[in-house]
């Protein structure tokens, strides 16, 4: 590990170092979302029955579809890195574009879902929600905050992948220098994992 220390600075990108940095950043994300999951589990412990009832108002079909969409996008993202490393830039750009597209579709679904709830008058501090039981208020607040922050991460991911796509097109990301794409991939997979947990906890507890 050490012998490469001198040459790594400024002469060549330290791949292991760059990836380590990204992983450590993801650990902070683990704790960030982890705290929300902690809140979720505490309130679920407190309002078990009401959470079950409230969950019936969510659309399982949309939720399942979104899960499949994100998983597929993750697969494309992973593949795009392999393709860059093999020098197949066109195909890699295609895969990245597919990832972006699926990310956008995910967000559109989310938009539709939120739209339905809001049209039913269910949003934080709405008169309809305040009349409901306390457990339901908390459930929907958790739903909005957690899927909202997750959606924000998807949105950021879409922008970042658009960046790597441009870089790949200009060959700034190439066979020998692809750590930007790889780190973006790590981020995108992490966002996927968050959804893997959000999905059963909100949609499947009816």
């Amino acid at each position: 590990m050490n012998e490469s220390a001198e040459t790594t600075v400024r002469h060549r990108i330290d791949y292991t170092g760059a990836k380590m940095g990204m992983w450590i950043f993801l650990f902070t994300e683990v704790l960030f979302f982890g705290s929300l999951f902690l809140l979720y589990s505490v309130f679920r412990d407190k309002y078990t029955a009401e959470f079950h009832k409230a969950a019936t108002e969510l659309d399982i079909v949309l939720g399942t579809a979104n899960t499949a969409i994100l998983l597929t996008s993750s697969m494309f993202m992973a593949t795009s890195i392999t393709l860059v490393r093999k020098g197949k830039y066109g195909l890699s750009i295609f895969c990245q574009a597919a990832t972006i597209l699926l990310g956008i579709v995910f967000l559109i679904n989310k938009y539709i879902e939120w739209g339905v709830h809001i049209s039913h008058g269910i949003y934080p501090n709405s008169p309809a929600l305040l009349e409901m039981s306390r457990g339901k208020i908390i459930f929907f607040s958790l739903y909005y905050v957690m899927t909202g922050l997750h959606g924000l991460h998807v949105l950021i991911g879409v922008f970042v992948i658009s960046g790597t796509l441009l870089f790949t097109a200009r060959r700034k990301i190439n066979e020998t220098d692809f750590v930007k794409l790889e780190n973006t991939g790590l981020y995108w997979h992490f966002v996927d994992i968050v959804w893997i947990y959000l999905f059963p906890l909100f949609y499947l507890i009816t």
Binding site: G185, L186, H189, F190, I193, I196, Y197, P200
Partner: peptide, 22 residues
């Protein structure tokens, strides 16, 4: 048991993503 099952499956999925995709 449904909660335990769904957490268990979610963890299996997360493990797959971490091991292979990441």
């Amino acid at each position: 048991y449904a909660v335990i099952a769904s957490i268990f499956i979610a963890t299996a999925k997360a493990a797959l993503v971490v091991t292979f995709f990441m």
